[in-house]
Amino acid sequence: MTGSAQAPWVRPVLAALLVALGLGWSAHTFRTSREVARRLKMRREALAEIRDLADSMRQSDCWIEALRQQGSRRLVSPTELYEKLAPETPAPVAEEKPPLEPEPGWRVRRIELEFRDVALPAFGAWLTACENLRPAWRATRLHINTQTISAPDHAEVGLSLEGIEITSP
């Protein structure tokens, strides 16, 4: 077989086919580029949100570190503290809820307290003392009602306390 005897139409037909292939591929690339651009935009937006969420999650790591530095100490019972501070007044009704475990070796204790009739100055002093303990108790809910109690500066009080204990740092 000799290579020189090439039909005159072979070259133009091949060229036309190649041009058609190039144009077809260009059209495909154009369509694909729009799809890829849309995907990239979506991923950029998702990445920005993920980074924001990661930053906000990282913030609580500082708090954990600060609490960890306080060491592993047990919470003092708030009712025992109340009996110590105001021995002549009736003790509140206390109900402890099951503890939570936000981190391994950490325990969040939650106590609901009901004071039927309490002198508000004494209650304020006791609550401040609770908050100043290390580890501290924090009030998460406070309900004060003076309408049901006739004595001045006395009230019916409902209180939710929450405290964090590190059992194994």
Partner: peptide, 28 residues
Amino acid sequence: ELQTVRTFAERHRTDRAPIERAFQPPLT
């Protein structure tokens, strides 16, 4: 990816709410 991170962040926020509250000004 985003859905997984959102779900994880929500759970993380709920779990660590008491820790966050410990650093906020007390209700008193």
